[in-house]
Design a protein around this nucleic acid. Structure first.
Lengths: 267, 267
DNA sequence: GTCGAGTGTTCGGCATAACAGAACGCTGGT
DNA sequence: ACCAGCGTTCTGTTATGCCGAACACTCGAC
């Protein structure tokens, strides 16, 4: 898991860092949770240490004991904090209503991603009406080269930055349609700039179609992208153009909202 | 805020507890975030201590520095962890489709709460089609005595437990219609058991109407409640009975999903 | 332009508090 | 009945997290 933290290495507190690592460990463990022995192994500490950490986190609601005192899973306080985190990002707050409208207008699952150094991080999701649910976790950092949101963001960067980013992120191949060379990608990004929206046509996942468009903050910098997702079967080819324009139109509305017609961005 | 810790007081690690308190502090601070000095004051520690905690949390993605190294807000990793927390509860996963249907069937905002020691904690929310959005944050622990979900859950507990819980939680009065004595509440709970659903008729918030019904896990224990919310203006009095039954019916379906097959255990 | 009051940051030393390890009960499988 | 595995408890030791004081910087007032 590439969790690279460019923050200052100095002034770390060991037990808190271990507690955070424990949260990740439990998150990876799945619904059945983790016992102290597993925690201790995973963290490389003594059992008693793991127990102290778990108890403390549980008291704060960041973990919860599943059985009586035995195994631990993620706590429900994380839900509240996560919800607040997306609201406080203010992009999430402003974007959520627009996301609902986009979902209703297209009948598809709509998502909002913010731009973190070129990577899309999904902040909000509104499920469409259909029977199929697309199970992309919020807060997840997606790959730039094979997702609609990622390419919509890349299309706003200059070529040198794109090359540098791809050099770092790589271009993992998921399906036969995944773009696998930088030249192919750059060509596609040029197309994105012309039409104003990006397409992911089974490039990340077989049978899944996405369309995305970037939005911009009050500095005019690309702040993120909106996207819609559905089964490719349900997206008639001749409607792709209209669909893309709908996404772009909603993204433009978010850009306007962010550029401060209503909101006092000061302070 | 009453953040009661029923976990064992022993074996706590101080710095982790402080870090968790810091998360709460930042959550309360709002979008502009917190500076080191404010953190230190809020926690009652030295500035350098607060800085170490914040840096460590930021490195784990639980906080993020808003400006360059100055103020801190909630981190986006919380979003991912919160999302995973609700998925791992498996009630959320099974309940979401039913929640969508309930929202569509009623046209109202539908919510799913789990039962945490008698308190309802909202895990999922699906907004209705109407123009008004009810902005209750996910993961929030609601009051038992004045919410539909809360009373639906209370109605499944025996009287002694209800008295004990109310003794702890209190019965804050929000509107003229809020039930303010335990006897009134117990009478209402008896009515809930008879009809199979609970009503919040402007008891928590003026002008807002809710209906809720409990659902049960495979042990037959009350695992939580579904509820719908709308403006009281939009809920004709004569439709309350039908509305309540619709909510109860969806709750029963969730009970069945949770128990694997049948047995909608009602005590 | 100068001063100050408010930040965030750095550093070193002391005492605390966090850690490891071994021993204790418990439960469930064989 | 046994052992193997778990979660839990306790005590000593030393690393570690903590404080406080001093530093660097950014504003605003005068």
């Amino acid at each position: 898991m590439p969790n690279i933290d460019l923050a200052d290495e100095r002034y770390r507190v060991q037990s808190v860092a271990r507690a955070a690592a424990l949260l990740e460990l439990v998150a990876d463990a799945g619904p059945q949770g983790l016992g102290v022995t597993e925690m201790a192994q995973g963290l490389g500490v003594a059992k008693s240490t793991a127990l102290s950490l778990a108890r403390t986190l549980a008291a704060a609601g960041l973990l919860r004991s599943l059985d009586v005192g035995a195994r631990y899973g993620l706590g429900l306080n994380l839900l509240r904090l996560g919800d607040l985190a997306s609201q406080q990002t203010s992009i999430g707050e402003l974007g959520l209503p627009i996301l609902h409208e986009l979902s209703r207008a297209t009948g598809m699952t709509a998502r909002l991603a913010v731009n973190e150094n070129g990577y899309p991080i999904f902040l909000e999701r509104v499920d469409g009406g259909g029977p199929v649910r697309f199970h992309a976790p919020l807060g997840q950092r997606e790959e730039p080269h094979c997702t609609a949101a990622g390419k919509a963001i890349l299309a706003q960067m200059d070529e040198a930055d794109v090359r540098r980013l791809i050099d770092e992120a790589g271009m993992r191949v998921h399906t036969p349609k995944t773009l696998s060379t930088v030249e192919d990608l750059l060509g596609d990004l040029e197309r994105v700039r012309q039409v104003g929206f990006a397409i992911d046509d089974e490039e990340e996942s077989e049978g899944v179609f996405c369309a995305g468009a970037a939005f911009f903050d009050h500095h005019g910098r690309c702040a993120g992208a909106l996207s819609v997702t559905d089964l490719k079967l349900d997206v008639p080819l001749r409607e792709v153009q209209a669909l893309g324009l709908t996404v772009r139109e909603h993204a433009d509305r978010l850009s306007m909202a962010l550029s401060g017609s209503s909101r006092a961005a000061r302070r």
